[in-house]
């Protein structure tokens, strides 16, 4: 065995905000991953909730395929409100 598996750590800093990825750590199991994450990433009250996810479980898009993968959004500027012209003087639109 080389090392314990890798876990990704997500912290919710306060109510009303989502969990944000802060880094990773090694731990033998989920329980120790949580405890280590607390000691490593919230030593200064940075969080009120923690998620740990085995890194191997994360499915990611391929950077090499980025262009083709995100291509469908490239030619749809009409999804943005700024695409539309509004006559002068019209408000609340």
């Amino acid at each position: 065995m080389n090392d314990w598996p890798l876990w990704e750590v997500f912290v919710r800093s306060r109510r009303g905000l989502s969990h944000v990825h802060v880094g990773s750590l090694h731990a033998p199991d989920a329980e120790l991953a949580l405890r280590n994450a607390r000691d490593l990433y919230t030593r200064r009250q940075e969080g009120i909730s923690l998620w740990v996810v085995p890194s191997a479980q994360i499915v990611a898009s391929d950077p090499g395929e980025r262009e083709a993968f995100f291509d469908p959004a490239d030619d749809k500027v009409y999804r943005h409100p700024t695409f539309y012209s509004v006559p002068e003087g019209v408000e609340h639109l």
Binding site: N2, D3, L6, G23, S24, L25, H26, D39, L40, R43
Partner: peptide, 24 residues
């Protein structure tokens, strides 16, 4: 001293993103 341990761990994790193992 606990912070120094933490800093070491942040950095080993950053190095691992380059495809190396902390144990190595």
């Amino acid at each position: 001293v606990q912070d120094e341990a933490g800093h070491g761990l942040y950095l080993y994790a950053a190095a691992e993103t380059l495809g190396v193992d902390r144990a190595d």
